[in-house]
């Protein structure tokens, strides 16, 4: 039965907020397409939402805020060190008391500085953090999406989600034929921070077109600058790459002569030489 005006209007809020299921959204949109007054109401609500999105002030956290929070952590650590010092019998020995106190202070400062530097270092993946808090990075994108281009917009959503949760910007996700999206998580690759996106072969694909019957296809994305890259890789340049700007390296990494950037797109579990990205995002 076709949806009436009252029902459609009651769902407008959820429609503009993307809270409706696919079938509900289709039903509401079908009504809106043939009801000008409800369509106008929806357009007005969408304009209001856009107004709030665009015009509401979005203050940035002051630069010193993170440092202040980290210093508070350091302070906790110092307190712990000092508490340990009090029970140290060496400190209670009168002749060495001043010396021991000074040494403890120096050690405390050194440890604090190291802790501070450790915490400040731009560790994008935090291998330990990823394992301790893996769920914090769980994907909100519905798994099971075909990745061959038949689901428009999923790549953009995935890129935005990864950037929002890790600050890692992926410029390009290649089409992976006959596979479905499973999930993603941060991962270290050779001491470098990367994002791993997992796919499964599409069980509905014909056997001859399926991804070699593999259990999982993992694609690693690693935005790199030249200095981060091991020089031995430069010796492994392959000639005959079709793009004049980009040079394909072993293991799927791409070096762009034009932008002087490396872009790594390692595809594991696929047959050797079966690469998915042959151009850097700039030249693609």
């Amino acid at each position: 039965m076709a949806m009436g005006c009252n029902e459609a209007l009651s769902k407008l809020e959820e429609l503009v907020d993307g809270e409706l299921s696919l079938s509900e959204e289709e039903a509401v949109r079908a009504h809106l397409s043939c009801c000008p007054s409800c369509g106008q109401a929806q357009a007005s609500l969408a304009r209001l939402k856009r107004l709030v999105e665009e015009k509401v002030k979005k203050p940035q956290a002051p630069a010193h805020l993170q440092e202040t929070i980290l210093k508070a952590l350091e302070k906790d650590f110092e307190t712990a060190v000092e508490a340990a010092g009090v029970t140290d019998p060496v400190q209670r020995a009168r002749p060495y008391r001043v010396l021991a106190l000074a040494a403890a202070l120096v050690l405390s400062c050194l440890l604090s500085a190291l802790t501070f530097l450790y915490l400040r270092a731009p560790k994008l993946s935090h291998a330990e953090a990823a394992s301790a808090c893996a769920e914090a990075f769980r994907s909100t994108i519905h798994p099971g999406l075909p990745t061959d281009g038949s689901s428009p917009g999923w790549k953009e959503k995935l890129i935005a989600e990864i950037q929002g949760k890790t600050n890692i910007r992926i410029d390009h996700i290649p089409d992976i034929p006959n596979a479905i999206y499973v999930g993603w998580e941060p991962q270290r690759v050779r001491d470098l921070n990367s994002i791993r996106i997992d796919f499964q072969p599409d069980p509905t694909a014909p056997p001859e077109a399926s991804a070699q019957g593999l259990a999982m296809i993992s694609v690693f994305f690693l935005p790199l600058k030249r200095m981060d890259f091991c020089c031995s890789y430069l010796k492994e340049l392959e000639s005959g790459h079709p793009c004049t700007h980009c040079i394909q390296l072993k293991e799927g990494s791409i070096y762009c002569l034009r932008t002087d950037n490396f872009y790594l797109s390692v595809v594991s579990n696929l047959e050797e030489g079966q690469l998915l990205a042959r151009h850097c995002p700039t030249c693609r």
Partner: peptide, 16 residues
Amino acid sequence: SAFAGVALRHADSLYR
């Protein structure tokens, strides 16, 4: 420390 590393990624949103 690991937790702080992850939690601090939300500092901007949290401040907003």
